[in-house]
């Protein structure tokens, strides 16, 4: 009897937290709908048990300790894992009701609709103009006039136009880190995606550049659905509508730490009255 209950305690995973959405208007249509999403790198299960919904024209923030799988989950949204040998996504990840990992779905088409901004600014070694025009060109825009217009509006949206308008043909690698990151944001919105995924977009930036990008995100919210990974809790509290807290737990089968979604709720709720002790510990800085 005793041995049995110990056994049970060992093998049963902690209860999964089902998101209870409050405060934020639920009326916003669902863009992503995840059910029990897991991501593997080879045989290593990096993330498990991610069940959540991402809503249109909202900013959703992912927070959690390093290595808990925030990047890993984010990259599952636009099938970026397809390019990593050995990486595999399990569970259901629906985009407007369509299973993104259906064999008929093309990753290229997915990524045209779901753009991504990376942690490290990654302009390609071309001119500023060509960096922005890259995506539209891929989508078949050829006319110079049209490209010029796209480049200008994208750079304006990313609050970069005034700084670079006189040197559009200069190499993008000559920009500062913060400018490069705004260039990458401009490049992403130039293809008019529906969703913009951002992986710690401000981690290499000074507070002023960070503030600009946050401002930018608030502006872009009306046109895009944004998911942002951040280590900066104030940032999550400042810009996001909903916050997902990820953490790691010991996988009893493999003795390795697997990331999981602990709590997902309206940002105001997460930061004022979290439902899970682990979330509370993390946001109050008492995380072990």
């Amino acid at each position: 009897m005793v041995a049995e209950s110990i056994q049970a305690a060992r093998t049963v995973a902690p209860p999964r937290v089902r998101p209870t959405l409050t405060t934020v208007p639920d009326a916003a249509p669902t863009v992503f709908d995840l059910t029990d999403v897991e991501v593997f790198y080879g045989s290593f299960r990096a993330v498990r048990g991610v069940t959540m919904a991402i809503h249109k024209n909202q900013i959703t923030a992912f927070i959690g300790p390093s290595g808990c799988g925030k990047t890993t989950v984010l990259r599952a949204f636009n099938r970026m894992h397809d390019t990593t040998p050995g990486a595999r996504v399990a569970g259901k990840l629906r985009y407007h009701g369509v299973d993104l990992y259906d064999p008929e779905v093309s990753a290229v088409e997915v990524r045209r609709r779901i753009g991504m901004v990376f942690q490290k600014p990654n302009p390609v070694p071309k001119s500023i103009y060509d960096n922005i025009a890259f995506g539209p060109r891929v989508n078949g825009v050829r006319e110079r006039g049209k490209l010029d217009a796209i480049v200008e509006t994208s750079l304006r949206s990313a609050a970069l136009w005034d700084e670079v308008k006189d040197r559009l043909s200069a190499s993008a690698l000559g920009l500062s880190g913060g400018q490069q990151q705004r260039l990458c944001i401009a490049r992403t919105i130039a293809v008019e995606p529906e969703v913009v995924l951002m992986d710690e977009p401000c981690s290499a930036l000074d507070p002023i550049a960070t503030a600009r990008i946050e401002e930018l995100m608030r502006e872009l919210k009306s046109r895009f659905t944004i998911v942002i990974v951040t280590h900066n809790m104030q940032q999550a509290a400042r810009v996001s509508d909903r916050t997902a807290f990820f953490s790691t737990e010991l996988d009893s089968a493999t003795e390795r730490r697997t990331g999981t979604l602990v709590e997902y709720d309206a940002t105001a709720k997460i930061f004022s009255n979290p439902g899970d002790q682990r979330t509370e510990n993390y946001i109050t800085g008492r995380f072990g």
Binding site: M80, E109, F118, N122, V124, P125, F134, V138
Partner: peptide, 25 residues
């Protein structure tokens, strides 16, 4: 790889990524 990812994230096919980003670099 982050250069390849930059192109992929814009919905570029693999072959086009190789031609327009990888080979020039």
């Amino acid at each position: 790889d982050h250069l390849r990812e930059a192109a992929y994230a814009l919905g570029t096919t693999k072959s086009r990524t190789i031609l327009t980003v990888v080979l020039p670099a």
